[in-house]
């Protein structure tokens, strides 16, 4: 196949992978929340309720799209797209599998690697902010303000934890980070060195917590907390435009889980299941399967945490971000630098 065809195939696959994850996540969210609360959850539509997301989508599609009076029409329509697109772009550098032949199962092998994901994911805040402002609703505006402050605060710690993984592996190229982890062990466990073990554990945990905050998930979903802000920044959105916000959020979760998997959980490799030297289609499929399994374990944790922990207060959220996570992340990075020098010298 020509390179262009390969690229198109991989982009198509990634698109299907991300959008296809949304119904699965809707189902997971609803069933797991039900199970945690001792209920059954939706199980009537289709076998085991598996067609429930389809019913939800039909409902979204058939509802009326309302633009509030005195809302800013342009930005109001544009912002759901701005939420939807950045996470999709962020997936471009995540290696979702091993090789097939000579073709890396990664859309773009950029030499800035994970930095690309970081920078693109940081654009996701615009959709939320502008959407809330354009709604011309004070609850939406408050939600957007909270979201933007929260996202910039936690982006710092998130970036530092990403850098920690980069420092452990010594490269920003996600493919080589995965390679490094195959040779030395998961970054979560310090990449095979006892010295780095506490740093890796701390970094992985911190990255997951910051990812919760970045994706506006409970316990950090202050931007849309229904108790005080009705629906937060998407209060005024209806039908498909709301669904876009919804999907954007879930896709961002999948992409973030993919990043955590790549940076800390050994990417597409699991000893005994995948063979890094196996470049046949079986090996490629297996590696995609392992990657997917890891991503979904993380997504399960997202949902599990959501239905376990209560929401923070806003000042607590900010304190946690700036006074706890940021110092820990900085300390982690400094300690990693020292440990790195000791290990090499």
């Amino acid at each position: 196949m020509t390179p262009w065809l390969w690229l198109a195939a991989k982009i198509g696959f990634a698109f299907a992978y991300l959008v296809g994850a949304v119904p699965v996540l809707i189902m997971m969210e609803r069933r797991i929340s039900a199970f945690i609360q001792g209920r059954q959850g939706p199980n009537r539509v289709g076998p085991m309720g598996s067609l429930q997301p389809l019913a939800d989508i039909i409902k979204f599609l058939t509802k009326e799209f309302v633009v509030p009076l005195r809302a800013d029409r342009w930005l109001f329509v544009l912002s759901p797209l701005l939420v939807f697109v950045p996470p999709m772009l962020g997936f471009a550098v995540v290696p979702f599998g091993n090789q097939y032949g000579d073709e890396l199962l990664q859309i773009a092998n950029l030499d800035i690697g994970v930095l690309f994901s970081m920078s693109v994911l940081s654009l996701g805040v615009y959709g939320i902010t502008l959407g809330g402002w354009a709604s011309n609703n004070k609850y939406s505006l408050l939600g957007s303000l909270r979201a933007s402050a929260q996202l910039i605060s936690y982006e710092l710690s998130l970036g530092l934890t990403i850098l920690l993984a980069v420092m452990i592996a010594g490269t920003v190229d996600p493919v080589r980070i995965v390679q490094w982890q195959i040779e030395h062990g998961w970054n979560l466990f310090g990449g095979g060195s006892l010295w780095r073990l506490p740093l890796g554990l701390m970094g992985g945990l911190l990255m997951f917590i910051c990812a919760l905050a970045e994706n506006n998930r409970l316990p950090f979903d202050l931007a849309e907390c229904e108790a005080e802000l009705v629906g937060g920044y998407h209060t005024e959105y209806s039908s498909m435009s709301f669904a876009m916000f919804f999907m954007g959020e879930y896709i961002a979760m999948v992409v973030m889980s993919g990043l955590i998997t790549t940076l800390y959980l050994g990417g597409w490799h699991f000893p005994g299941i995948t063979d890094p030297t196996d470049h046949s289609w079986v090996g490629a499929l297996l590696s995609i399967g392992v990657f997917t399994a890891k991503v979904y374990v993380l997504l399960f944790t997202y949902v599990w945490v959501r239905w376990t922990l209560p929401r923070f207060k806003y000042n607590q959220l900010m304190d946690l971000g700036w006074k706890v996570f940021l110092p820990i992340a900085l300390f982690n990075l400094a300690a990693m630098a020292i440990v790195g020098v000791i290990l090499e010298g």
């Binding site: 797991i32 945690i36 001792g38 599990w304 376990t308």
Partner: peptide, 14 residues
């Protein structure tokens, strides 16, 4: 989290 996990696997009341 352990408590919610316990609820997740326990038989449902519904």
């Amino acid at each position: 989290l352990a408590k919610t996990m316990e609820w997740m696997v326990r038989p449902k009341a519904t």
